[in-house]
Computed example of a mutant assay.
Amino acid sequence: MVLTYLILTGSLEAIAIVLALSPGNFSIPFPASRAQDSEIKSGVFRSLSPPNPAPDTASTGLAEGIYLYGQSSKPDEIKKEYFVFEIRQSRVVGAFYLPRSAFYCFYGTSEQTQLNLTVVDSYDGSRSPYSVNLQQYYPISTLSDNDRRILGMCKAAHKQQVWEK
């Protein structure tokens, strides 16, 4: 939206500044049109069971901590779904996202290899139940600054539903 405004107003200096200040692995959730929103949503949620099953790496459950999982074993691949989350006392808060796109916060519980979640729509605030089988995703050991930023926003937005129960 900001970049569109700058392009329309013709401020080349401002465009250059915005582009220079945006690192390659930093995604900003710009408001999307409803058509783009449904495309992002269907991309993120269309295959909570990826076609290529990942190895069984979560068979014993997860300890408390912060995790990143994805459809790919490599972080930040375009058109691949990822989710970053924190677990404390079997409670979970985090976000689903596609790189360089919008993200959707979630909260819920963790049971062995299953996350039972409530996903919050970023645009209208509606909530939907989802279950995620961690065995169908790849764990990724390195979190980017952007992963931590997104997780921080979701933790702040939903701490009452998760930690203060």
Rank of each mutant, 00 (worst) to 15 (best):
Leu12Arg: 12
Arg34Val: 08
Pro53Asp: 05
Thr113Gln: 15
Ala63Asn: 11
Asp145Ile: 11
Phe26Pro: 03
Pro51Asp: 07
Thr113Val: 09
Val18His: 12
Pro50Tyr: 02
Leu21Ile: 09
Pro75Leu: 05
Pro55Arg: 08
Val92Cys: 01
Ala35Glu: 15
Arg100Tyr: 10
Ala102Arg: 09
Ala102His: 09
Tyr130Trp: 14
Leu143Asp: 05
Tyr69Val: 06
Glu39Cys: 04
Phe96Asn: 05
Gly65Trp: 00
Glu64Gly: 12
Asp124Ser: 09
Phe85Leu: 03
Asn116Ala: 10
Glu64Arg: 03
Ala63Ile: 03
Pro139Cys: 10
Leu143Thr: 02
Ser33Met: 00
Phe106Ile: 03
Arg46Asn: 13
Ser47Lys: 13
Arg88Leu: 13
Leu62Val: 01
Ile87Leu: 06
Pro31Met: 10
Pro23Arg: 06
Ser141Lys: 13
Glu77Asp: 14
Leu134Cys: 03
Gly61Asn: 04
Ser49Asp: 11
Pro53His: 07
Tyr69Gln: 00
Pro29Thr: 07
Gly24Ile: 13
Ile66Pro: 01
Val84Phe: 01
Ile15Met: 14
Ser27Trp: 07
Thr142Ala: 15
Ser33Cys: 04
Val84Asn: 05
Thr57Glu: 00
Ser126Val: 07
Asp37Ala: 11
Leu117Glu: 09
Val93Met: 03
Asp37Val: 08
Tyr97Gln: 00
Val44Gln: 02
Pro29Lys: 06
Ile78Arg: 10
Ala35Trp: 09
Ile87Trp: 02
Tyr67Phe: 12
Asp145Thr: 13
Pro55Met: 04
Ser122Phe: 15
Ile15Ser: 07
Gly24Ala: 15
Glu86Ser: 12
Ile17Thr: 15
Phe106His: 08
Gln36Val: 10
Ile140Leu: 15
Pro51Trp: 05
Ile15Arg: 11
Phe30Gly: 06
Leu134Asn: 04
Ala95Cys: 07
Glu13Lys: 14
Pro55Asp: 10
Ile140His: 02
Gly94Cys: 03
Ala102Leu: 11
Pro139Tyr: 06
Ser131Tyr: 06
Leu62Trp: 10
Phe103Lys: 00
Ser110Gly: 10
Pro75Cys: 00
Val44Glu: 07
Pro53Thr: 03
Val93Thr: 09
Asp147Gly: 02
Tyr107Phe: 13
Glu13Phe: 13
Asp124Lys: 07
Thr109Trp: 01
Ile66Asp: 10
Ser42Asn: 15
Tyr104Ile: 04
Ile28Pro: 02
Pro29Val: 04
Ile66Lys: 12
Pro50Phe: 03
Gln135Thr: 06
Val132Glu: 03
Ser126Gly: 12
Asn133Ile: 02
Pro75Tyr: 06
Ile66Gln: 12
Gly125Met: 12
Phe103His: 08
Leu19Ala: 13
Leu48Gly: 08
Thr118Gln: 15
Ser126Lys: 14
Ser141Glu: 14
Gly94Pro: 02
Pro129Val: 09
Lys79Gln: 09
Tyr137Met: 02
Tyr104Cys: 11
Leu117Gln: 09
Gly70Ser: 01
Phe96Leu: 11
Thr109Ala: 08
Ser122Arg: 14
Ser144Ile: 10
Lys74Ile: 09
Gly65Cys: 00
Arg91Trp: 06
Asp37Pro: 02
Ser141Arg: 11
Thr57Tyr: 06
Thr142Phe: 14
